[in-house]
């Protein structure tokens, strides 16, 4: 049973402190929503967990089942079971979706799946996400619409089956149909109850489809309020203003 434990995490970007002591624990079977206004550090938290070189961890630790992922390289973190669905997936010219997915699956599982099994699995997962099979042969994210990119992030999530998924504003830029498809993918991923989800969002809309167990309000680089799903509803009606003030004065 996987547990992701973030302890007193401090992160700076170009010497500017963005995260100022984040504490958060995601256990298997739990879905945590992190909500907060723009610039509150939500994405910084996501990238710092994944190990993006731009983000300097200046203090604290991130433990996956007791092991500090901050000591691992980016790819080691992914193989250990941390997945980041990115807000802005990167276009990689000349690398096909199928080749990329197979290489990633091979790396994460430790052995190359049989071609036939793999392509069947991939086709099945693509169909569930209503992705045109022709995308398998296209270059990774190249020329994809915003919605297509997000579906592919969830396709990767479903195929790589991590222990903990961090979804960084996966809902942004999606129309309602795409949002439902993507949410169903996230729900399939968590249905076994053995995986954890850290869902970062600016809006409450996705929480209607992906029900969180806990909601954390992020402001000025730390968690300023915690609660259950009812907190999201409060944010929906009252906005972030109260918390941004609290964060600034804290």
């Amino acid at each position: 049973m996987a547990t992701l434990e973030i302890r007193d995490l401090h992160v700076a970007v170009e010497d500017k402190e963005i995260l100022r002591g984040v504490n958060l624990t995601v256990r298997a079977g739990e879905t945590h929503a992190i909500m907060g206004p723009n610039g509150s550090g939500k994405s910084t938290l996501a990238y710092a967990i994944a190990g993006h070189p731009k983000y300097d961890v200046t203090g604290g630790e991130v433990l996956l089942d007791g092991e500090n992922v901050l000591d691992m390289t980016v790819d080691e973190r992914a193989r250990a079971g941390v997945f980041l669905a990115m807000q802005y997936p990167v276009e990689v010219p000349g690398v096909s979706v199928s080749n990329f997915l197979r290489t990633a699956v091979t790396a994460v599982r430790g052995e190359a799946p049989k071609l036939r099994d793999f392509s069947k699995e991939m086709r099945g997962a693509m169909a569930e996400l209503q992705i045109d099979p022709a995308f398998a042969q296209r270059n990774l994210n190249e020329g994809f619409s915003g919605g297509e990119k997000k579906r592919h992030e969830i396709l990767q999530l479903e195929m790589l089956k991590p222990k903990v998924a961090v979804l960084d504003e996966t809902d942004s830029g999606l129309d309602i149909d795409a949002l439902k498809v993507v949410s169903e993918g996230v729900n399939r991923f968590r249905e076994g109850g053995e995986t954890g989800v850290l869902l970062i969002t600016h809006y409450t809309r996705i929480l209607r489809y992906v029900k969180p167990d806990f909601v954390h309000v992020f402001a000025s680089g730390r968690v300023v309020e915690e609660g259950g799903p009812e907190l999201a509803e409060l944010l929906e009606s009252e906005g972030y203003e109260k918390f941004t003030k609290a964060g600034a004065s804290a």
Binding site: T73, R77, V90, V92, T103, A107
Partner: peptide, 15 residues
């Protein structure tokens, strides 16, 4: 950014 994206999916740096 290309390398980070691929590595974030478990693919080792050199690959």
């Amino acid at each position: 950014q290309h390398l980070f994206y691929l590595q974030a999916r478990g693919i080792p740096h050199d690959v």
